[in-house]
């Protein structure tokens, strides 16, 4: 027989399937370690080239254009601002680093909250421009990926060629699944059926919407692919490993 029992304290335990801190902690560790690695790479190296392989940290190859001082920094500001203003990464860092909030229905860390209404976070509204700049970098990365299949002896396929190709494909899908691009190609229209051009934009919008549903996954996969590509080329440059060649 059910019965009322003694009243308990008003502050309940919060049992959940996964501890609330697991996701913010994982994000802090992943982004934190990547940022430290990127700083180390950018501040301590002047080139990321190994024969026909070029690290994405150093592409476009401003070093060969005569830039001798910290060439990676001339490149990295574009992907840095593109990712920092990305709608997915905003969710990730607001939750993990700012604790605004750390998890759903968990209290915010700070009493004063202004969202994205003031400088500097209002700059996030310019995400579309960093997207357009990232397409310029992406064009260079595609050139690098093609170059990675052409060795001194001619066409060939090395492990580095495959890594660089996978990297640029992931970066392309990440860029094409962007919320701002989704808006630019068709999201800003109210009437898709009003003209033939609008229907073309509707088709593009539908396709980008499909990719956009996995934007977070592409964001992480492309981040790790950049990391792996650079680390692989750095290890080749240092002589720690050799590049296995599948087709000579």
């Amino acid at each position: 027989m059910a019965q009322a029992v003694t009243p308990q304290a008003s502050s309940p335990a919060r049992p959940r399937e996964v501890p609330w801190w697991a996701q913010p902690l994982a994000t802090v560790v992943a982004l934190g370690v990547f940022s430290l690695y990127a700083l180390w790479e950018a501040l301590t190296h002047t080139s990321g080239r190994y024969h026909n392989y070029l690290s994405p940290f150093f592409s476009p190859d401003v070093h060969s254009w005569g830039v001798r001082v910290l060439p990676a920094l001339w490149v990295l500001w574009v992907p840095l601002l593109f990712r920092a203003t990305c709608y997915y990464y905003r969710k990730a860092y607001y939750r993990s680093f700012f604790w605004d909030p750390p998890a759903c229905a968990m209290p915010d860390a700070k009493p004063n909250y202004r969202g994205e209404t003031r400088f500097p976070l209002v700059i996030n509204n310019l995400h579309r421009y960093f997207l357009l700049l990232s397409f310029v970098v992406l064009a260079f990365l595609w050139k690098d990926a093609v170059d990675a299949f052409f060795f001194r002896s001619g066409f060939g396929v090395g492990l580095g060629s495959i890594i660089m190709l996978v990297n640029v494909v992931l970066l392309t899908v990440y860029s094409l699944s962007c919320h701002a691009l989704r808006h630019l190609v068709g999201g800003r229209l109210n009437c898709f059926s009003c003209s033939r051009g609008a229907m073309v934009r509707y088709s593009l919008w539908k396709r980008i919407t499909e990719w956009n549903e996995r934007h977070a996954m592409w964001a992480w996969m492309s981040l790790f692919s950049v990391w792996i590509t650079d680390l692989y080329i750095r290890l080749l440059i240092s002589g720690a490993i050799h590049d296995p060649r599948f087709i000579r």
Binding site: Y87, K91, R95, C104, R128, A180, H183, G187
Partner: peptide
């Protein structure tokens, strides 16, 4: 004021993509 942390979308019992399909398009 919305910082797109998507909790609204996570709790919606109708599975409406509130942040992705409404708030972010309005921000844009």
């Amino acid at each position: 004021y919305c910082n797109v942390t998507k909790c609204c979308q996570e709790v919606c019992p109708e599975h409406i993509h509130i942040t992705d399909n409404a708030i972010i398009p309005m921000k844009e």
